[in-house]
Design a protein around this nucleic acid. Structure first.
Lengths: 131, 131
DNA sequence: GCTTGACTTGGAGTTGACTCCAACTATTAT
DNA sequence: ATAATAGTTGGAGTCAACTCCAAGTCAAGC
């Protein structure tokens, strides 16, 4: 019957089995298909949800936001507008985060170049404000 | 003597007084200048550290990494190489995070456009894999 | 049919980053 | 000098997102 177990999925996506169970409990993915005995059997569709959840989490979106999206999806076509709004909101979250990171990277790069100079030229003069 | 209090700093940077005290306790900024009575008096230099810490935190760098940088800085010029390495490491962290976010944004944008189409054209056919 | 190993659940514990609190001290206004 | 206000500390509490555990169930090999 070729059951795809939680172990296989955890290895495939480099995530713990506990995390996979937690994602399901938290509603971040819909209930996974089970065997007659109650054991999780990740079907194509289940894997797609896992992948989506991991992708969103890897960017730092909250479990709550992802769960809400899943909840709306499970309610059917009537929630398409809501889902669109949610996705747009989360896009804004990520865009903002991207801006923060870009700004910090600028600052980091500036400092790094100052440090590199200091090492190249010998530490001739290091001021407090260079820290 | 124009003391700059924690209250003023918290308002200036939109951060709680508790967070400012926590940052200091955690070593994310060096000990702040104090008045004779033991009250924090944020001098120019202290503010620069606060600003740096907030910038790094806003990008999601860990309190631990920032504290380590501050610790090395306080040890003097001998730690410049270490500090450079630390900053380069943190730059990698941010670059990786940026990549993750970019990837998730691509996916999010794709989904958003599918939802927008669905709303524009009426929900003619919505498949499971469009969720 | 029995052992062994993987899977199940509910719930407790952990980690990082704050946030809140109580008891106390310093400063300012009257 | 005293009351009100603002600041201080150490430590406990909170929240998100896991992570770990115990006690039990299921499945595969012998």
């Amino acid at each position: 019957m070729a059951v795809i177990t939680i172990k296989e999925v955890s290895e495939k996506y480099c995530v713990t089995q506990d995390a996979l169970r937690y994602y399901e409990r938290a509603g971040m993915i819909p209930p996974v298909t089970r065997t007659a005995g109650g054991i999780r059997d990740y079907r194509e569709e289940d894997l797609a949800w896992v992948e989506l959840a991991l992708c969103m989490r890897s960017a730092g979106l909250s479990v709550e936001a992802i769960s809400e999206y899943v909840r709306l999806s499970r309610l059917g076509d009537g929630t398409i507008k809501d889902r669109l709004a949610l996705l747009q909101g989360q896009r804004e979250v990520l865009l903002e985060r991207q801006r923060q990171i870009a700004g910090t990277l600028d600052r980091l790069n500036y400092k790094i170049s100052r440090y590199e100079d200091a090492l190249k030229t010998g530490i001739l003069k290091w001021k407090k404000e260079d820290d």
